[in-house]
């Protein structure tokens, strides 16, 4: 059994009275492609946002490579209105801002593409390398870091070559066609040297052929960069085609887990997606 990369334990996220993610637990091991699926509004992106530090979960714990990166328990006003389970199980509070979590090796893409709009394709990738700089603002301003700067530029160009975007490196990021913008977002995430890549609906808005290409692309970069991939996706062809395991959530709660075949035949999943016959 390979090493555990991400361990999500009893995570609950409550907004006011709404429990968006309810007692979610999952494990992702090194080298796997794991998908998180569920109907619209099931809480998939919220779960992502908890892992990446955008939200602070109301209750629960998240470990990355055996180290706790997020932990929280209901406190303050939430103490009384908390509607989830396992209240009192956690007593510590660990908070990490998204940039720290990215620095640990978790990179993500966004459901609605969030590229740096005024910047070129090349600069978009370059910006993601800023995190690993060793220069301070003084040495960077007075160009005392040319060696590092050139290295960054070279690496950015290599990354763009891998995905075949080197020809449009000097174009504005937003001038690219949709599919290439998606790819650029993935490359930008790769530039932070992640070990775990979170993809939030990478195939949203793609046609069947683009989706197929994307599947191959994800597999390719996974092998090439030794990644573990965790993705949210609606395209069942893609999910069933490339994932090793699938978690299914509905109304914030996990309803199924297993290999694509197991999940496909699971009555609870079919019920969640298609509805149950009342009679």
């Amino acid at each position: 059994m390979s090493r555990n990369v991400l361990h999500v334990e009893n995570v609950t996220m409550q907004f006011g009275g709404v429990v968006a993610v309810n007692n979610l637990s999952m494990d992702i091991n090194e080298g796997e492609i794991v998908a998180l699926i569920g109907p619209n509004g099931a809480g998939k992106t919220t779960a992502f946002n908890c892992v990446t530090g955008v939200y602070e979960p109301t209750n629960g714990r998240i470990d990355y490579m055996g180290k706790t990166i997020v932990e929280n328990y209901p406190s303050g006003k939430m103490k009384r209105s908390y509607a989830g389970e396992n209240a009192g199980l956690y007593t510590k509070r660990v908070v990490n801002t998204p940039d720290k979590i990215t620095a640990l090796g978790i990179a993500r893409t966004f459901q609605n593409i969030r590229l740096f709009k005024s910047q070129t394709v090349f600069n978009n990738v370059l910006i993601a390398m800023h995190m690993r700089r060793t220069s301070n603002v003084f040495s960077a301003t007075f160009r005392l870091n040319m060696k590092e700067e050139n290295q960054m530029r070279q690496e950015a160009m290599e990354l763009l070559k891998i995905v075949g975007l080197e020809g449009v490196a000097d174009e504005l990021a937003t001038s690219l066609p949709y599919g290439q913008q998606r790819r650029l977002e993935i490359v930008r995430a790769l530039a932070t040297h992640p070990k775990l890549l979170l993809l939030d609906e990478p195939a949203a808005g793609m046609n069947p052929q683009e989706t197929e290409e994307l599947g191959a692309f994800i597999k390719e970069i996974k092998d090439r960069f030794n990644l573990t991939v965790f993705m949210i996706e609606h395209h069942m062809n893609l999910v069933m085609g490339i994932s090793d395991r699938i978690y299914v959530i509905d109304f914030g709660k996990q309803i199924a887990e297993g290999t694509p075949e197991e999940v496909r035949d699971n009555p609870a999943v079919i019920a969640a997606y298609l509805g149950v016959d009342e009679e």
């Binding site: 990446t52 955008v54 801002t97 998204p98 940039d99 720290k100 990215t102 620095a103 990179a107 993500r108 966004f110 969030r114 590229l115 740096f116 709009k117 005024s118 910047q119 600069n123 370059l126 910006i127 993601a128 390398m129 800023h130 995190m131 690993r132 700089r133 220069s135 603002v137 960077a140 301003t141 160009r143 870091n145 700067e149 960054m152 930008r188 995430a189 530039a191 932070t192």
Partner: peptide, 23 residues
């Protein structure tokens, strides 16, 4: 410089900039 690029990234999209490891 690389800091200038980070500034522009923050201007363009704070959430994405933070997700790219920019404090």
């Amino acid at each position: 410089s690389t800091y200038g690029r980070a500034f522009k990234a923050i201007r363009d999209d704070e959430i994405a900039a933070e997700a790219m490891g920019i404090n």
